[in-house]
Nucleic acid binder design. Structure first.
Lengths: 241, 241
DNA sequence: ACGATCGTTCGGCGCGGGCCGAAGAGTCCT
DNA sequence: AGGACTCTTCGGCCCGCGCCGAACGATCGT
């Protein structure tokens, strides 16, 4: 039985959702959380340059609004993006948003260079590294861009060879193109992108640089990319410290 | 030569973009414009229940913000969504936004029933009609949902048989799943969805109901759906007046 | 020429929301 | 037990912004 005729059309409260992101501080929180990790309230407060009390209020709004999930451990309040759909929404918004000139301070430049090389974008790899991997996979026929982005049979076999098993396809698409705001080129996201990223961390191919969202490609990682993707290059390799 | 190392990372001004949609009136404008047509300033003002002067200010913001495109004809100011990417962004936001109870006035109920049956969603067909067509195409093997949404070889042939020629694939994906806020099921969008919708209007399969975004399936349209998709049903057929 | 309609500009009003600092509760470490 | 740290609550400030009405200019119809 259809009962759609008894359902009143309820307008989506677009303004309420957009209002959550319409504040500099809250937007800064969400962009920071795009690295996929859980941050504490004070980390976010310092990141955005506001008082702890202000951060608390903003986090309350974002959590009750459903954009953020929180988890309390001891005296810490950890928050992260609620789910991949939320991350995707923020990515899309960020990709369309106008740029805002950042103060080109010296440490900021060095940080931005590390971020441009390689970083996580929610649950997958981004930066020059993410783009290079995606391009190499396309060149080897593992990905197909003809109709949107799809994983080829060769691609499935290649993943299996690496020991990456994919969860059964549910709501979330296995492969998805993600365009973030430093690299202006698309890179691999979706469950495959997430699985590959996890595999790269587990196999020691990449490591986090300190506590930032930037990551560094290890020697093992360079070998792996050369062996499995014939991928060599310098643009995504971190400088020696 | 890579020159990415000279490019300063500029944070996307997410708050500015979200701020454009963070107002009830502006959000109401954008949702109305999701039907894909151009509206005049006063039409939007009346739709949202604000003074003309207020609408002018909001439209200025939305146009300079890049979300809307405008065209002036005589004393009229026509505005429409800037491009398909903008429409998609608003769709995604609307799909995630919390529902807001609408006052269930009697004319509103009747209007909502017509909208639920069949309407345009930006440039493609939506409502029960859009969902039924999409489902039928899937059942006949014209669409494949295994890896995201793709058009099969049979699907391409079927479109050619109808006389629908597709523009060469550029940035915009040929098929895309669109989830709007009345039907909670996905329906066909992308360039294929747009081309099919245009074909349906050109062939007299559907007509606009007055000046609303609701549409009515004609007798010719019912025959076409039966012949080409073995699709029969009542949920998407308008009542006789 | 005239009224009618559409759109814009401007001044002014009022409210909401973002910010802080101070005070306090809860947690961890030593 | 004590200090250090994280987080929350509250009061208060103030700016921004969404709203309107009035006046005006522009355009269309007759």
């Amino acid at each position: 039985m259809m009962n759609s005729h008894t359902v009143h059309v309820q307008d989506p409260d677009l303004a309420a959702l957009a209002g959550l992101l319409a504040d500099r501080t809250r937007a800064s929180f969400c962009l920071a959380l795009l690295d996929g990790r859980a941050w504490t309230a004070i980390e976010l407060a310092r990141h955005a340059g506001v008082a702890a009390s202000t951060a608390t209020e903003h986090l309350n709004l974002l959590v009750t609004g459903g954009l953020l999930a929180q988890e309390r451990q001891g005296r810490h309040r950890y928050v992260r993006l609620a789910d991949p759909a939320t991350a995707e929404l923020i990515e899309n918004l960020a990709a369309m948003a106008p740029r805002r000139a950042a103060p080109p301070s010296l440490p900021a430049v060095s940080r931005s260079r590390a971020l441009a090389r390689a970083r996580t974008c929610y649950d997958h790899l981004a930066g020059a590294l993410g783009v290079a991997i995606t391009t190499a996979m396309t060149d080897r026929g593992l990905l197909d861009w003809e109709q949107g982005l799809t994983l080829t049979g060769d691609g499935t076999a290649w993943l299996a060879e690496l020991g990456i098993t994919l969860p059964p396809a549910r709501r979330r698409p296995p492969v998805r193109s993600c365009l973030d705001w430093t690299e202006r080129r698309p890179h691999l996201a979706g469950t495959v992108g997430a699985a590959f990223c996890r595999h790269a961390f587990d196999s020691g191919w990449v490591n986090r640089i300190g506590t930032s969202r930037a990551i560094a490609l290890t020697d093992a990682g360079q070998r792996a990319l050369r062996d499995h993707l014939s991928l060599t290059g310098a643009s995504f390799v971190a400088e020696r410290t």
